[in-house]
Write a protein that binds this DNA or RNA. Sequence first.
DNA 1: TCTTACAGTGAGTGAACATTCACTTAATAA
DNA 2: TTATTAAGTGAATGTTCACTCACTGTAAGA
Lengths: 207, 207
Amino acid sequence: MRDGAETRRRLERAALKLFVAKGVAATTVREVAAAADIAEGTLYRHYVSKEELAWELFHRHYRGLALELDRLQAGVATLPDKLEIMIRHFCKFFDQDPLLFSYLLLSQHGHLQRVTSETPNPVDVVVRVMEEGLARNEVQGLTPEVAAALVMGLVLQVAVFRIYGRLTEELSPLADTLVKAAWRLVAPGPAGTAGSSPGTSIFSAKT
Amino acid sequence: MRDGAETRRRLERAALKLFVAKGVAATTVREVAAAADIAEGTLYRHYVSKEELAWELFHRHYRGLALELDRLQAGVATLPDKLEIMIRHFCKFFDQDPLLFSYLLLSQHGHLQRVTSETPNPVDVVVRVMEEGLARNEVQGLTPEVAAALVMGLVLQVAVFRIYGRLTEELSPLADTLVKAAWRLVAPGPAGTAGSSPGTSIFSAKT
DNA sequence: TCTTACAGTGAGTGAACATTCACTTAATAA
DNA sequence: TTATTAAGTGAATGTTCACTCACTGTAAGA
């Protein structure tokens, strides 16, 4: 007979892999069990349902995401070349598979239909971190070009949310928040060096 | 009795909305039919299967994606402030919902299991466009900071592919291609002004 | 040894789903 | 008017899937 913890580890490893590869809805319990080399019924000894298992994984990685963002905020506040640090963190952040998984699960958020009032909104957190970091340190390197490139990154992020999050009425404000924050970063701002008047983005300026 | 073309339009509009919102697997034919205010059976007069319908939409938007990328390439080749144009295009590109949908479908690519040899690889196209554009024009604004921000954007894109594409053995080289291209953009390059020695990225340079 | 408790198993169950089909309706041609 | 064709319908069908349950190991304490 096996150890319960070991079984759970195997199931979660298999489920994570399959959920990332195919999405929660398209992954069958049979597949997860087979991949973990465990009987179907055994899965239900450890998790109430497939959904419950997905949520288990979601919350674990969500905590990881929040932690990483806190660390990012601390880094921005204390280290010298703020822009570089920010970017470095973002790259690391998005290149780590466990954290990437947060975004998969974020996208399934809506489908799982269980966003509680406690659940922090990761977009808000990202936006707050960037704004505070930039405002507090009057970032030197924020030329129009850098800002534009940053906006490109943010717009890409919005794209992610738009596509994989839900494009419904309730959730699209979430994307809008990020778009607005992106424009705030490049347009006026009390501390930015890239300022032009509100409404006039760097994109509307000719050579 | 209705017009066949009108019915198809209604079905596709409804399917598009639902596929984007919930994913293909999680969307039922019943839902699509109900949203289009059409009987379930009627859908099968026009499409062989739900999968077939998804592929119909996939190919249409895939063509749109390819077209837009060609236009982007033309723009980079002929207009003055190349970096700005590129970024502007990218923003527009990712902010258009029909094109965003391509990415949703790209993510379902693997699940639908029907990538043919003719199907162009969108990552390759993006990379080629950026490399050629930058190489040909010796882009002025490519300071380390701009490059870093661009990389951030690209890494975000990789994230998208990693998460929503398939993280399997066959497809992860695709993500690696983009990562490598990103580093090539910031590191050495024959035309870039951001050059340092290969292997030494701007991220490893201290203040 | 016997007992209790926990872990594992896979055939079985019912609900949800994609797809089919016998039939109806409308428009146009003969 | 009648015949033909294309479009539409929703109850019926068979399949897939999440989840259950009666039963089998295994280990540790009495």
